[in-house]
């Protein structure tokens, strides 16, 4: 097993620990993710406003660090935030970052 992989990266989480996508304060899109794999799928389809909302608030980093315990990807996303991306640019970069992490996690040492 790759020692860089956080222990919960492939875990399927219970409902209360899933990531819930909102477009603004209190406005839940109905889209949620219970694992990093699912997160990778959902960020491709969710309203891009939701990605902007959560990235600016630091919600992605918080969930990835505190729930999935993956500080490595959290740091990658923190870097994305500094680029001030929006719209499809943001979606593409985010998808790329998460996919890269998943691929890296699956590959042997």
């Amino acid at each position: 097993m790759n020692p860089n992989i956080a222990p919960d990266i492939f875990a399927v989480l219970p409902r209360e620990k899933a990531f819930y996508f909102f477009t603004s304060i209190g406005n839940y899109t109905g889209v949620n993710a219970s694992s990093l794999n699912e997160f990778a799928e959902k960020i491709r389809e969710v309203n891009v406003k939701s990605l902007e909302f959560h990235l600016n608030r630091g919600d992605f980093e918080k969930w990835l660090t505190e729930v999935l315990q993956d500080t490595e990807i959290a740091e990658e996303i923190r870097k994305l935030k500094r680029l001030n991306l929006a719209g499809d640019d943001l979606r593409n970069h985010l998808c790329e970052t998460v996919s890269r992490r998943l691929e890296h996690s699956k590959s042997p040492l």
């Binding site: 409902r15 209360e16 899933a18 819930y20 909102f22 304060i25 209190g26 406005n27 839940y28 899109t29 109905g30 949620n32």
Partner: peptide
């Protein structure tokens, strides 16, 4: 405040089974 409103909805309302989506007006 808005932050605690959001935390309540995100942590205690959205995860309830059967919730499809939520619209909130302050």
């Amino acid at each position: 405040d808005q932050e605690s409103l959001h935390a309540l909805i995100a942590n205690s309302v959205a995860p309830l089974e059967g919730v499809l989506r939520i619209r909130t007006s302050i």
